[in-house]
Amino acid sequence: LDLVDNLRSLNPWWRGQPGPPLPTFRRWPFARLQHLLGHGMTPASVLRGPRRVGKTVLLRQLIESLIAEAVNPQRILYIAFDELPTLRDLDEPVLAIARWYEREVLATTFNTAAHEGRPAFLFFDEVQNLEAWAPQIKSLVDNHAVRVLVTGSSSLRIEAGRDSLAGRISTLDLGPLLLREIAELRFGHSVAPFWADNGLDAVTHAEFWRSAVERSREDREIRGRAYAAFSERGAYPVAQERPDRPWPEVADYLNETVIKRAIQHDLRMGARGVRRDEKLLEEVFRLCCRYAGQTPGASVFVPEIQQALGGNVGWNRILNYLRFLDGTLLVRLIPPLELRLKRRKSPSKVSL
């Protein structure tokens, strides 16, 4: 009963009621997600990215858009898997909830609804919190004509499920704000992207680069303002949409909801989680922040961490923690472009 009440509370449009107020600003993947959801090659799509970059807002904006297009609200199911403790008592919660929704809300089978030209849209938020989520999504889309969009904040756990979903899922990565998004969110200046999606053919033509130079000159002023805003407050949406709030207050909020949440929550996930060292992970992340944009290797990390923690911590262990941070999407390790195969491989560049 509690689970049913929670599901109905998460889907107020079933009762003709609105969802929570949403910002009018839409992040860059909105149009692409609309296409994937309605006409994509695969029945399911995954939107992955770090916490607090706007994944849930995008899902809710897509739902709002579907309802505005006169899609029957009964055809829309939204579940936030990090907000329903009652799910722990369910075996195969994705399939169990889908069966309940099909019977109690949609009031017909998924396949019948699709044959009648009114397929169901299923939104699964923070799906990485579920064990064996991928086989359940696979079973759902293999046997039922539904359109599915899932989000996840852990690259490691999302990647772990992709093998069983080959050919059934499209993946889209969402990071912090782009400069043109900062220009729109902070200053109300909309800048259309110059380089279109999947537009690799364009870069082979000289005219593309001449036009790019001209476009760069036209956008110089707003680009400079956006970069100044980025340099001042970073690129997390909450930092730019609330410029009136003091930076220490915003920084504390991001530290609690993004960094500590990822380190303390994601650190303990899985069979290996209980053996991970939280202090070591925090120190590795601190050094990533210090050397962001650089290529620190063993000669930098090992002595600084040994000095800070007072122990004999080896490079291989540190490297595993760097890869774990990359998997939580807190940092991005950018491998070097080696032009000569015989050249000794350089360390990866660290990007926040």
Results as ranks from 00 to 15, higher is better:
Pro246Met: 07
Arg157Gln: 08
Phe301Gly: 03
Gly270Leu: 14
Ser154Leu: 07
Phe324Arg: 09
Thr204Arg: 12
Pro73Thr: 06
Lys279Met: 15
Trp209Cys: 10
Trp14His: 02
Glu218Asp: 13
Trp100Gln: 14
Tyr78Ser: 10
Leu309Ser: 06
Gly161Pro: 05
Ala31His: 02
Pro176Ile: 03
Gln128Val: 11
Ile67Asp: 03
Trp13Val: 01
Arg180Thr: 06
Ala31Val: 04
His39Asn: 06
Glu338Lys: 09
Arg186Asn: 01
Pro237Ser: 12
Asn111Ile: 03
Ser153Thr: 01
Gly117Thr: 13
Asp142Phe: 05
Arg118Asn: 09
Thr295Phe: 11
Ile222His: 04
Phe121Trp: 14
Val203His: 13
Arg242Lys: 10
Arg118Pro: 00
Leu62Phe: 09
Asp197Tyr: 14
Gln34Asn: 09
Val141Trp: 03
Gly152Asp: 01
Leu172Gln: 00
Trp133Ile: 00
Ala206Phe: 15
Pro20Val: 08
Val4Lys: 09
Phe187Ser: 03
Val146Cys: 02
Arg340Ile: 06
Gln294Cys: 10
Ala44Ile: 00
Arg317Tyr: 06
Ala113Tyr: 10
Val141Leu: 02
Leu179Asp: 00
Asp89Ile: 05
Ala298Thr: 07
Arg290Lys: 15
Pro336Tyr: 08
Arg147Leu: 14
Arg103Gly: 01
Asp252His: 02
Asn11Leu: 02
Asp244Gln: 15
Glu159Gly: 01
Thr295Leu: 11
Leu267Gln: 12
Gly167Gln: 00
His35Leu: 12
Arg52Leu: 04
Arg276Val: 04
Ala160Gly: 08
Ser346Arg: 11
Ala292Ser: 13
Ala251Ser: 14
Asp252Lys: 00
Tyr236Val: 03
Gly49Tyr: 02
